[in-house]
């Protein structure tokens, strides 16, 4: 695979590989195969690929029906349309009965840049986290996205996978052992702990270099399993870094990773916490770089926030 690739493509590469041995795996899409990345599955297994047309609610309902007769459906659309528009069908049709349906939301965050705020989903993490019976996964790079495809399949029950449009350098390996429900410590450091998910983990990884040049040793913890949340793993990692923690997420801090980390630490003493996140506002059109800069989704901002935290 290319060294720099979006998770939306890595995920389906992993799923195509897995589906060779699992004829029960089906993929559904709502007319966005090339956008979500599910086109790879369509090419590999056309007879197991179902395009329901532009009808996300029905796509989720049909997926629920497929799972009821023994299939394992992965249904995809842009995050805002599947996690947003189809929310209530995911709730009552899938999660309420704990059906084995996988929901793939692509273009999580603001990197659907040119399309504007209507297509940029900052709420999906919060929405999906709030659902009983739901597992929420987010790979940080395309290598991890391949592994996440297998993990999502192995979990018997509803899973939401958030993928991203933005191609990032791989920082994890295909040989990694992905531990479901556990934090993934990517680097150790005593001065502060950076907790990140999705492409923010890649940006934070780049920020480590800036911090190093400034004499700061940060640990980097990747959260691929957003729910169930590894509270103990977070507490341990933050403790090891002197109680300083910077949370980085490309989603609304309201109900997102920032709140998940903060709530894990409420009973701990001596915590200093900061965040790089979408500050409860919608996205808008712009060039990707320009937009990320405007919303503070950059390695420079992560490093600046980290240094500020170290001075507190």
């Amino acid at each position: 695979m290319a060294n720099k690739e979006a998770t939306r493509f890595g995920f389906y590469e992993g799923l195509v590989e897995l589906a060779k041995d699992h004829p029960e795996i089906y993929c559904l899409d709502a007319d966005l195969a090339k956008t979500t990345g599910s086109v790879a599955f369509q090419k590999a297994f056309p007879e197991r690929y179902i395009d329901v047309g532009i009808a996300e609610q029905n796509m989720v309902g049909i997926s629920a029906g497929l799972s009821k007769v023994g299939l394992v459906p992965f249904c995809a659309s842009m995050a805002v349309f599947v996690a947003g528009r189809a929310f209530e069908i995911i709730r009552n049709g899938v999660c309420y009965s704990r059906l084995n349906v996988k929901i793939v939301g692509s273009h999580g965050g603001i990197t659907a840049a040119g399309d504007g705020g209507s297509h940029q989903c900052v709420e999906d993490i919060g929405i999906m986290r709030s659902l009983p019976n739901m597992t929420v996964l987010q790979p940080c790079d395309s290598n991890q996205a391949r592994l996440i495809a297998k993990l999502a399949y192995e979990i018997k029950g509803p899973v939401y996978v958030r993928t991203s449009r933005e191609p990032m350098e791989n920082i994890t390996s295909l040989d990694d052992k992905l531990e479901f429900g556990k934090v993934q410590v990517l680097s150790e450091g005593k001065d502060l702990c950076i907790i990140a998910s999705g492409m923010m983990t890649c940006l934070a990884h780049q920020a480590l270099e800036i911090l190093k040049e400034n004499g700061i040793k940060a640990s980097l913890v990747n959260i691929h399993t957003i729910k169930p949340f590894d509270r103990d793993g977070v507490v341990a990692a933050v403790r090891k870094a002197g109680g300083r923690v910077l949370v980085c997420e490309e989603s609304n801090m309201v109900c997102g990773l920032t709140e998940a980390v903060a709530s894990s630490l409420v009973e701990e003493d001596g915590i200093r916490i900061s965040h790089v996140a979408i500050e409860d506002r919608f996205g808008q059109s712009g060039a990707t770089g320009e937009l990320l800069e405007a919303y503070g989704i950059t390695k420079e901002n992560i490093a600046a926030k980290a240094m500020e935290l170290c001075r507190r």
């Binding site: 029905n58 309902g61 049909i62 029906g65 009821k68 299939l71 069908i89 009552n92 049709g93 009965s97």
Partner: peptide
């Protein structure tokens, strides 16, 4: 009970998926 329902319209969508899944697998029912 073959399906949780109560949210109107949802059962019809799920039933459509059940019929499609049975057909895809060449199963009776």
């Amino acid at each position: 009970l073959d399906c949780s329902t109560g949210s109107l319209g949802q059962g019809l969508s799920i039933a459509t998926g059940m019929a499609l899944g049975l057909k895809k697998q060449g199963r009776p029912g």
